[in-house]
C-alpha cells in the first residue's frame, strides 16, 4: 500500500471508524446521570470515554494525513461528510437529554452490545492492516474492548432471562437495531479498494464472524432471528444520514462554532 495512491480509501476507512466511535460515544454520553442505577451510570460513562478516546485517536491519524485539525474534523463537518452508520446516530429515545429524555435502556444495551461485538472483530482485522498507524491504534484500542464486551454481554444475558417485560423490550430492541445494523457491517462504496490495499479484510468475512458471534449469544438465551442484519434507512458510509445526525451535530458543535475568532477553549 502506498499512501499516495491509496489515500482516498485509506481516509474513507478511517472516517468510518472515527465517525462510528464518535457518534456512538456521543449518544452514550447523553445517558450520563440518567442510567437505571448509579453504579451503572459510572461504569457506562467509562465505556463512553474510552470510545470517544478511540474516535480522537482516529481523528488524529486523519490529521496527520493532512485532513485538518482533529477538532475541526469532529465538530465542523457537514452531515453529508460523516461516514458513520445510521443506526449509531439514532436518538436514545423520544425526548431530549435535558428534558424528559424517555431513553430506552433495552435499545441502548442492544445497540452497544452489537456495536462492541462488531468493533472487536474490526479491530482484530485492523491489527494486520497495511497502514501501520492504524494497526498500532487497533492494538491499543483492543485492550479496552474486552471490558466493554463483558459489560454489555452481562446486561444482555440478564435482561433476556429476567422478567417477561424485559424480554419483550429486549426483543423489540433487537428487531429494531437489526434492521439497520447492516450499516455498521458495510465498508461502503470504496470497500474493494480498501481490501486490495490490505487495509482491512473483506466485508463478507467480517460480517460472517459477526453473525456467528451474535448467533452464539442468541443461543445462550434461547433466541433466534431469521434474516440477516439490514440497512433499510440507507448507507451512512455514502453520506446518507437522518435528521437525528443533523440534530446531534448541532448540539455537539454548539460551543465550538459559537465564537469563530476563538483559538482556544
Amino acid at each position: 500500500m502506498s499512501i499516495e495512491s491509496n489515500k482516498q480509501e485509506l481516509t474513507e476507512l478511517i472516517y468510518q471508524l472515527a465517525d462510528d466511535d464518535f457518534i456512538h460515544a456521543h449518544r452514550g454520553s447523553e445517558w450520563l446521570g440518567l442510567a437505571p442505577h448509579i453504579e451503572e451510570d459510572v461504569a457506562f460513562s467509562s465505556i463512553n470515554q474510552d470510545t470517544m478516546g478511540h474516535a480522537t485517536m482516529y481523528y488524529r491519524i486523519l490529521s496527520e494525513l493532512g485532513e485538518g485539525k482533529a477538532d475541526d474534523l469532529s465538530h465542523l463537518r457537514k452531515k453529508e461528510q460523516f461516514r458513520n452508520a445510521i443506526i449509531l446516530e439514532e436518538k436514545n429515545g423520544t425526548g431530549e437529554y435535558l428534558d424528559s429524555p424517555n431513553y430506552d435502556w433495552a435499545f441502548t444495551v442492544i445497540r452497544h452490545l452489537f456495536y462492541d461485538v462488531a468493533k472487536k472483530i474490526r479491530l482484530e482485522s485492523l491489527k494486520q492492516s497495511s497502514y501501520e498507524p492504524l494497526a498500532d491504534a487497533a492494538r491499543k484500542m483492543l485492550t479496552e474492548q474486552y471490558y466493554h464486551l463483558l459489560h454489555w454481554k452481562i446486561w444482555f444475558k440478564q435482561l433476556m432471562t429476567s422478567t417477561e417485560e424485559a424480554r419483550d423490550r429486549m426483543e423489540t430492541a433487537i428487531k429494531r437495531v437489526w434492521k439497520d445494523f447492516g450499516g455498521v457491517l458495510t465498508l461502503g462504496p470504496h470497500a474493494e479498494k480498501m481490501v486490495s490495499a490490505g487495509l482491512i479484510e473483506d466485508e463478507a468475512a467480517l460480517r460472517e464472524r459477526f453473525i456467528d458471534q451474535i448467533q452464539e449469544l442468541f443461543n445462550e438465551v434461547n433466541y433466534s432471528i431469521d434474516n440477516e442484519p439490514l440497512m433499510i434507512r440507507g448507507d451512512g458510509r455514502n453520506g446518507e444520514h437522518t435528521e437525528d445526525l443533523e440534530h446531534a451535530l448541532k448540539t455537539l458543535s454548539e460551543v465550538y462554532v459559537s465564537d469563530p475568532q476563538a483559538t482556544g477553549w
Binding site: 453504579e39 451503572e40 461504569a43 471490558y147 440478564q158
Partner: peptide, 12 residues
C-alpha cells in the same frame, strides 16, 4: 448479583 457486581466494581 455477583456478575453485575464485579463489572460495576471495576469502574466504580
Amino acid at each position: 448479583n455477583e456478575e453485575m457486581a464485579i463489572v460495576l466494581a471495576k469502574e466504580n
